[in-house]
Amino acid sequence: MVDLRRAYGAAPWHLLLLVGCLAVAGWVALRLAGEPTAGRMLLWFVGAVVAHDLVLFPAYAAADRVLRRAGRSLRNHVRVPAYASALLFVVYLPGVLGLGDGTYAAATGLAPEPLLGRWLAVSGGLFAASALHYAARRPWRR
């Protein structure tokens, strides 16, 4: 076991988990290979990787570097609502941006117009709650 850990660089359970993840990814790739829209899905996946690695990662790394100067506590009070807001944005992306109106309306029977306002309201609420929490904790710090 010690030789495996030294050669691999991590615990054996990590290797087993990685092999399991690769097996699941391979199974999904085989399932999607027969789909007529597999090319479009691959294009979206590659586009998402490129957009994240070349645009988003440098942007939020720079923002984090700026927040690092403000202190650890403030940085975490900005990070948590920002991540939650970003996750909500990605999940509801077509509705927030007003894309796919017909699909959303057909699936839910609702109009997608209020989604942008709701996402902004939830994001504002998350940041406001975090600011209140930071303000409440601030007097207690030395």
Rank of each mutant, 00 (worst) to 15 (best):
V80N: 10
V19R: 01
P94L: 08
Y134A: 13
A63Y: 12
P94N: 00
T37K: 07
V80S: 12
H14P: 01
V46S: 06
D101K: 15
A7L: 14
P58C: 07
H77M: 07
L22Y: 10
R137L: 14
Y60G: 04
A121M: 04
A136Q: 03
F89R: 02
A29T: 10
G20P: 15
A11D: 12
P112R: 01
A63I: 04
C21P: 05
E113Q: 14
W140Q: 13
G102H: 02
A7Y: 15
V46A: 15
L54E: 05
P58Y: 10
V24Q: 05
A129L: 12
H77L: 05
S123N: 03
L16Q: 05
P112G: 02
V19M: 01
V50P: 04
V46M: 14
L15H: 00
A62F: 13
V2P: 03
P81I: 04
L116N: 05
G39S: 01
A84T: 13
H14K: 07
G9M: 04
R118I: 06
A136S: 11
A62Q: 09
R138E: 09
C21N: 08
V66N: 03
A38W: 04
Y83S: 09
V80W: 15
L120V: 14
G98T: 01
A10N: 11
V91M: 11
L4I: 01
E35Y: 08
A38F: 06
R79W: 14
A135H: 04
G20S: 07
L110M: 13
L132G: 10
G102M: 00
G102D: 06
V28Y: 00
G26S: 03
V66M: 05
C21Q: 08
V90Q: 09
G102F: 05
R75T: 09
L54C: 06
L67P: 01
A59T: 06
G102L: 03
A131S: 09
H52S: 08
A38V: 15
R72I: 06
V80K: 07
S130R: 06
P81D: 02
R141W: 05
R69D: 12
P112N: 09
S85W: 10
R68Y: 12
S130V: 10
P36F: 00
Y134S: 00
G98K: 13
G125S: 02
Y92V: 09
R118A: 07
V66S: 12
W13D: 02
S73R: 14
R72T: 00
V90D: 04
W119Q: 02
A48R: 11
L126T: 07
L126P: 08
A62R: 13
G47V: 02
G39A: 12
A11P: 06
R79V: 11
L97W: 00
V91S: 10
R65T: 08
P94A: 01
L54S: 15
D53N: 13
A135V: 05
Y92K: 01
A111M: 14
L116W: 01
V122I: 12
T37F: 15
A121N: 06
A61M: 13
L32H: 11
H133T: 07
